[in-house]
């Protein structure tokens, strides 16, 4: 695993967007979730070490610890004292190929929307509204899953 050129044991690297208005710890949480969804991170992978992150991004170590605590709370990672933090749960059990297919059909929808005169903000608003409808119709379903199934709530 230690083949990364800067010696980091983790397959991912964080970046910060200072203009996003999203608190720093939450940016880290979201990037781990995103990496899980996209398959950059898998079960057993190590997250970047706290020291490596702060030495790269110049942020307070407590911010990283807070992000890792939150990820642990969400059941996605587990911290091993003196060793590091490792991926434990999964987000979305959809395979990469299936994801690519879904993205393709979404792209088709977006082209249709664009032809109909909808701009990007309009599409995002529609997507959010539809997501809201989906969540309401599915609220009952979430309780069925147990154990690592909590991940469904996060999205």
């Amino acid at each position: 695993m230690d083949i990364d050129k800067d010696g980091s044991p983790s397959p991912i690297e964080f970046r910060l967007d200072p203009g996003s208005g999203v608190p720093t710890y939450l940016q880290l949480v979201q990037q781990v979730e995103q990496a899980l969804r996209l398959g950059y991170l898998r079960q057993g992978d190590q997250l970047p070490r706290v020291k490596d992150i702060v030495a790269g991004l110049a942020i307070n170590p407590n911010t990283v610890l807070k992000a890792y605590r939150e990820l642990e709370h969400r059941g996605l990672v587990v911290g091993r004292r003196g060793v590091g933090t490792f991926v434990e749960g999964t987000l979305g059990k959809v395979g990469l190929r299936e994801q690519a297919a879904l993205q393709k059909s979404m792209l088709a929808w977006m082209r249709t929307a664009s032809k109909a005169g909808l701009d990007e903000d309009g599409m995002a608003a529609l997507f959010t509204a539809a997501l809201h409808d989906l969540r309401q119709s599915r609220d009952v379903l979430v309780d069925e899953e147990d154990g690592g199934g909590r991940a469904g709530v996060v999205a």
Partner: peptide, 25 residues
């Protein structure tokens, strides 16, 4: 400085005019 804080048990107090950079640190 942050790497030093991560590695050991040290409290840091620093004065600065660069208010925009405080939030991360």
């Amino acid at each position: 400085l942050m790497a030093a804080v991560a590695e050991e048990d040290v409290s840091v107090v620093f004065s600065s005019h660069v208010v925009a950079e405080l939030e991360r640190v």
